[in-house]
Each structure stands twice: as C-alpha cells, then as structure tokens.
Design a protein around this nucleic acid. Structure first.
Length: 420
RNA sequence: GGAGAGGUGACUGAGUGGUCGAAAGUGCGCGCCUGCUAAGCGUGUGUGGGGAUUAAACUUCACCGAGGGUUCGAAUCCCUCCCUCUCCGCCA
C-alpha cells in the first residue's frame, strides 16, 4: 500500500496513477475518512488521557480512606463516552484500511502510459529461427511425441489442466531442475520450498487481495488460497519482521505449482500449454535496500535472460505500460520468448519492482545504518515459468522428422541425451 | 478429532486488577578503565499513530498472539478465534 501521509500530500498524483493503471478508487473519499479518523483519534486520546489520570488517583484516595463514589460515577460517564468514540474510531479505521488496500502502486516515471499496445520494446536476443521445413506447433509436436495428455487431464480436472507424460514429463522435470539449479548455482539465490496454500493476510500482503479474489482458487473452509505464484509465500517469509542492517539483501528462489482460475480469459490464447489453470514456475524474490531496487530490477531481468540464452531461445524484453502493470508493481519487464511453430512471442517471465508497496502491506522492515526503521523494497520475477518455455523449446529445437533436439544446457538433466 | 500446557520487547524470562511499555538477565550502542582478545564499571537501548515544532528536545494515545467483553482502571478476570508444544486417537 501507499503511505497515507504521501497520499495526503499528493492527492492529484495518486489519483492520476490510479487512472493510468485503469484502477478505480476514490482518493478524496479516502482522504475524508482519514481526516475523520484523525479527529476521532484526537478526541479519544484526550478523553483517554483524562481517564487514565483520574484512574490513577483513585487508589491513592482509597488508601487515604476518602470517598470515591462520586468520582467513580463521573468516570463511568467518561468510560461510556470513550466506548462510543472507540466504536466509531474502529469502524472508520476499518473502512479506511479497506479503501487503502484498493489503492494501487504508482507507476515509475519511466513507465509508458497507456495499455498493452504501448508496452515498450527494450531489446532482444537472438533471432527468429529459420527452418528448411515447415515447423510444427506445440499441439502437433506434443501429440507426435506423446508429451501431454490434455484429454485425460480434462476428464478429471476440466479444461486448462495438463498431464505431462513420458518424455514430456521428463522434460518438464528437467526444466524445473535446470531452472532451480541455475538460480542457485549461477544467479546466487537461496532455495526455498514453501507452502502452496496461504491465508488471507499473506495474500493481502503481497497485493493479490483484495483485487484478485475471483482469480484464485479458494479453500472455503479454512479461508486459504492456492497460490497463483510462489511470490505469495516467499515474499511473506519476512512479514512482520524487522531485519538487521546487515541482513539485506536477501535473494530467494522457489519452485511451486501456480494455480489460476483465469476467470474471464476463456478462449484467449488457451491452446495447449499457453494458458492453463495449474502450471509450474521457478520464482525469484529479492528483499533489498531502497537505494538498490532500481539496479536490482535490471539484474533480475538479466538473471532470467541468462536462462533463455542458455537454452538458445530467441526472446525480447519489453517494459509494460502503466495500464498493463499489475496492481502492486511500479515497474515491470516482461520476457517474451519466440515460439516459431505458433508464430508468436509468449510471455515466460514478468519481473517487477514493487518498491515499498508490498513491504508496507506485509510490514517488512529493516533497520538502516542511521538506526531508523524503514520499509524494504521487494522485487520478484519468474525464472522461469515452464509451460511457455516448454512450447518455445520444443518448437525451436524441433527437427524435420518431428523429433526434438535437447539443448546442450539441458542434457545433464536428461541422461545426456541429444534427442528427447 | 480428544486431553493438557503455553503464547510478554532482538532473545531468555518475571509479572494474576491500579503509578506496567512492562523487573531481571542476555545481546546490542555509547563512555570509562585496562596498553592485545577477554573481563570490569557507568549509561543507554521497542514499534506505530496523533498534537506541537524550522528540526530536535517535547507531549499524548495505542500495542504483552488476534478480536470482543467486564471494570473508574486489564499484560493480569471472562468469551471467541488463531498459533506452538506434549500425550491419545484417526488417516497417509
């Protein structure tokens, strides 16, 4: 969330940001509530101070054998009044908090305005692969090599679920292991295995809630959510903690399946592995000093790029426009990998700087060198998500006979085979 | 699921209705002493909100797992929930 004091002194700036992000929330209503709350708080404090003062005198008077019935009767009135004020104060505070939770993060000044069409091309690596035969797409390749069974997955779970089988399962497992090893051995992250279900507080901390409640799978009975990304469990690792000055930065990587209802996106790029309800992803998360987050974002993009390069996959880097940014992000780069059979660039990684937005919500702080307690900056990004990496890989490395060559980097994970 | 114990500051741990934001110890900061490290002595050391201020000093309120309640007054009593530990049961 944003700092209430910041909103107070920059209401126009915040309102503009809300609009640029295509979000809806009433900043002036929020500020009115804020003022109301402060007024109530002031009244409460005054009255409460008096109550405390008199209450402290009562035992003294009693000890001196003075009659306190009159004073106690007066105090009863004050106590009642305090209760009333407190009720209103609590209600106002709750409403204010709820409203504050719907205010999105402010896009970084470098972020282009507008929707997806205004995403900014940053750079690309490699070129679109040329074939001397007509390349097949993921559907044909997975079918020919019997890598997936979508029909049977649908039987038990519905559309949008996947069964990897045989060599497909091996490839999926190899990718996950390769990604994890890469993050740990080459990029310097510490590996975590975290819960795949988290509670409401955690989901609010990272900013999935309240906005994305309908996009997540919820376990009603326990009010838990299946994580749509490991970000939810990894970022909450330090929730409600104050880290020591020397603790930063912290770099974590975690594998997790990701569960997304994808409500409202039916029929949109849903072929095969393109958009599924459950997929595998290796996530990178960093907790850093506020001074470092801008540079670290670039580093993390490089971390993810290095993996695509190792797999010999052509990709481009784009910076998301304000309207395409997620609720909590201030700046996001997407990595889009080229899938030659499908003929499209597919998003395989989204890397974001949340600055202090998540840290405020999840209450993640550190003690700076000046001894002041401050919010850390959090960043995260996929490194990488498997389904589209899988598509790009098999489409890029396919052979004329329909087989798939395994890129060098991945061979140690597949018994050093050259062909899948 | 059943029975019991417990959740206090960075940590250990006291505190069962009144001046407790909270003893003591550890750790950490600063100073002194001691001419290595150590030990010793002194002193300081929570977070957040409001008010005031150029700023600090200042002042006030909240916070002892969370939320309610009783009371003039709650870390302390009552209720609900959450979490941890031990034992039993059940399932894998």
């Amino acid at each position: 969330m944003l700092d209430l004091k910041f909103i107070r002194s920059n209401p126009e700036l915040v309102s503009t940001a809300v609009k640029n992000k295509n979000e809806k929330c009433d900043i002036s209503a929020l500020l009115e509530l804020d003022e109301k709350k402060r007024k109530l708080q002031f009244d409460f404090d005054q009255l409460r101070a008096e109550q405390k003062k008199v209450s402290a005198e009562i035992p003294v008077l009693k000890k001196a054998k003075k009659d306190t019935t009159a004073i106690m009767a007066d105090m009863k009135l004050i106590a009642d009044k305090l209760k009333d004020i407190n009720t209103e104060l609590t209600e106002t505070g709750n409403t204010l908090d709820a409203l504050l939770m719907t205010v999105p993060n402010i896009p970084h000044p470098a972020v282009p305005l507008g929707g997806e069409e205004n995403n900014k091309f940053i750079r690309e690596w490699g070129t679109k692969k040329e074939f001397d035969f007509a390349p097949l797409d993921q559907m044909e390749l997975t079918e020919r090599n019997e890598l997936l069974d979508l029909k049977r997955a649908a039987k038990m779970s519905g559309s949008g679920f996947v069964i990897y089988q045989g060599k497909g399962a091996e490839l999926e497992r190899a990718l996950i292991n390769f990604f994890l090893d890469f993050q740990v051995r080459k990029n310097g992250y510490t590996e975590l295995w975290t819960p795949y279900m988290v509670n409401r507080t955690a989901m609010t901390g990272t900013g999935q809630l309240p906005k994305l409640e309908d996009d997540m799978y919820r376990i009603e009975e326990d009010d838990m959510f299946l994580i749509p990304t490991a970000e939810a469990s990894v970022t909450n690792y330090y929730a409600d903690e104050i880290l020591a000055a020397g603790d930063l930065p912290k770099l974590f990587t975690a594998f997790s399946p990701c569960f997304r209802r994808e409500a409202g996106s039916y029929g949109k790029d849903t072929r095969g592995l393109q958009r599924v309800h459950q997929f595998n992803k290796v996530e990178m998360v960093r907790f850093v000093h506020p001074d470092d987050s801008e540079a670290v974002l670039e580093e993390m993009v490089n971390n993810a790029e290095a993996i695509l390069q190792a797999l010999g996959l052509h990709y481009r880097v784009v910076m998301l426009a304000s309207g395409d940014l997620s609720f909590a992000s201030s700046k996001t780069y997407d990595l889009e990998v080229w899938a030659p059979g499908t003929g499209k660039y597919l998003e395989v990684s989204s890397i974001s700087n949340f600055v202090d937005f998540q840290a405020r919500r999840a209450n993640i702080r550190f003690r700076d060198k000046d001894d002041k307690v401050k919010f850390v900056h959090t960043l995260n990004g996929s490194g990488l998500a498997t389904p589209r990496s899988f598509i790009a890989l098999i489409e890029t490395w396919q052979n004329a006979d329909g087989t798939i060559t395994i890129p060098e980097a991945l061979r140690p994970y597949l018994q050093n085979r050259a062909i899948l």
